Simulated scan of single mutants.
Amino acid sequence: MCTGKCSRVVGLGLLPLALTCIVCNLLLCFPDWDTQYVHEGGKLLTPAVLYLGGLVGGGIMILIPAIHIQATGRQGCCGNRCGMFLSILFALVGLAGSVYAVSVSALGLVYGPLCQVLESNGSLGKWEQPFTQDELSEQSYLFNTSTWDTCAKPPGVVRFNVILFALVLAASLLELLLCGVQVLNGLFGCLCGTCSKKRAEHTQS
């Protein structure tokens, strides 16, 4: 596969991953599908949600590079050595964004959601992150679903956060891989070309 075709595949692969990160981050703002949690600056939202790892890091910082990277696989102004050099720079931006998204989503999974806890007497307690001390225990809350009922409000917020943060983490890891591939591919494209001239000559003949 020539470097131009590889860029096209990488660019097309990044687009749905970026959209996945954006959608997941936006959904994380509405636990229990309720808009009340975004009021007052989102003080009732999990801190990792407000870091916008999926929206900014895995989303916008990937979406823009993906458009250019995909364009280098076509004939035209981007399908040349200069376009390939620019694709390296865009891929580096994508790498930074995906690393940020991985870090934020990992934090969201490790420390768990912000929620109103259920006290031992059955009453509602204060808003906190009840799983932040799990690193001191033998087993993380992620593998001990019986502890998820500790969070009473928003209902089902632990499962909600785990699923969406896991999706952002998986998507951003794939973005990290694809952007790394494009850095190498762009380097070869700068040195060897994109095969666009060969394709054009073959079409004309």
Score class of each variant (00 low, 15 high):
2 C>N: 15
2 C>L: 00
3 T>S: 12
5 K>H: 09
9 V>R: 12
9 V>D: 09
9 V>A: 15
11 G>H: 00
12 L>Y: 12
14 L>Y: 02
20 T>S: 06
22 I>N: 01
24 C>R: 05
29 C>M: 15
30 F>W: 10
31 P>S: 13
33 W>T: 13
34 D>M: 09
34 D>I: 01
37 Y>G: 02
40 E>R: 13
43 K>N: 12
45 L>P: 06
47 P>Y: 06
48 A>H: 01
58 G>K: 06
60 I>G: 01
61 M>H: 02
63 L>K: 04
63 L>C: 08
66 A>C: 09
70 Q>H: 12
70 Q>G: 11
73 G>P: 00
74 R>T: 07
76 G>F: 08
76 G>Q: 08
79 G>Q: 05
80 N>H: 03
80 N>C: 07
84 M>R: 11
85 F>H: 10
87 S>F: 01
89 L>W: 09
91 A>W: 01
91 A>P: 02
92 L>K: 07
93 V>R: 02
93 V>K: 02
97 G>D: 04
97 G>H: 01
98 S>C: 05
102 V>G: 00
106 A>F: 14
106 A>C: 09
107 L>E: 12
109 L>H: 06
112 G>Q: 05
114 L>M: 15
119 E>Q: 15
121 N>V: 03
122 G>E: 03
122 G>I: 07
126 K>E: 14
126 K>H: 11
128 E>G: 03
129 Q>E: 11
134 D>N: 10
135 E>G: 10
137 S>G: 10
145 T>K: 15
147 T>Q: 14
155 P>K: 15
156 G>W: 03
156 G>P: 03
157 V>D: 01
157 V>H: 02
163 I>S: 14
164 L>R: 01
166 A>M: 02
168 V>H: 01
171 A>R: 05
171 A>H: 06
173 L>W: 05
174 L>W: 09
178 L>C: 02
183 V>H: 06
185 N>C: 09
185 N>G: 00
187 L>E: 00
192 C>I: 01
198 K>W: 11
203 T>D: 14
203 T>N: 10
